[in-house]
């Protein structure tokens, strides 16, 4: 298999103040492994994996403002290709090449 088949190109956008936790940069381009191993079982990369990946690799400060338990903090909206992630299986959605994932905080300033 060629390299490009093992990795997915994912675009991530942060808004609503979340970008401040990520070097104040709204848009990020990532390469994510298409398959990951969880408890030594291989499986395709999903949004849950992406969230952990973002926390471990891109998050610069105050992790508790991004994640709580094993997912995003309540009050953070997630869109998968401009669709509410609640319609797409939330964290279980399997990432596809060229997906665009948007995270928006609802918790900042009225």
């Amino acid at each position: 298999m060629s390299n490009s088949e093992n990795f997915l190109a994912i675009r991530v956008e942060f808004g609503g103040g979340l970008e401040l936790l990520f070097s104040n940069q709204r848009s990020h381009k990532l390469k994510i492994p298409a398959n990951i191993s969880k408890n030594s079982v291989g499986k395709p990369a999903d949004i849950d994996y992406l969230i952990h990946h973002l926390r471990d690799n891109l998050l610069k400060e105050r992790k508790e403002l991004f994640m709580e338990k094993d997912t995003v903090r309540p009050g953070i909206l997630v869109l998968i290709n401009d669709t509410d992630w609640e319609l797409e299986g939330e964290g279980d959605y399997i990432l596809q090449n060229n997906d665009e994932i948007v995270f928006i905080s609802t918790l900042h300033g009225g």
Binding site: G15, L77, V102, S105, G109
Partner: peptide, 19 residues
């Protein structure tokens, strides 16, 4: 609040969000 933020997002309204 969720719908307000979604509305702003889909309408591409220009707002400020810093604590």
């Amino acid at each position: 609040e969720k719908e307000i933020v979604m509305y702003a997002y889909f309408k591409k309204l220009d707002y400020f969000s810093t604590e």
